[in-house]
Amino acid sequence: MVDVRLFADLAEAAGERVVEVEVPAGATVGAALERLCEEYPAVANRLFDGDAIRRGYTVAVDGETVESSTALAGDELAVFPPVTGG
């Protein structure tokens, strides 16, 4: 199980700020995102443009951006839209 922390319209689309996604041990970030999108199609719509993550959207582990091929080591993924602070 991996926790996926969501923000802004992504959290609104899922109805939750943190969702649990079931993936086997040693799975990749990409696999976790696939499961996330299967369970939350509304999130999938906002996060992906076809097969590619939309420009400006970030997938991070411990605050650091990760690639889809990265193996999941910890227990929390964060997915967020383009930043709009300031």
């Binding site: 923000f7 802004a8 319209d9 400006g56 970030t58 605050g63 967020f80 839209p81 383009p82 930043v83 709009t84 602070g85 300031g86």
Partner: peptide, 17 residues
């Protein structure tokens, strides 16, 4: 910095991004 802005106007409400 990961901050996200929602704007609320007299007519509308939306995430700025």
């Amino acid at each position: 910095v990961p901050l996200f802005k929602k704007e609320v106007t007299v007519d509308d409400e939306f995430w700025v991004h």
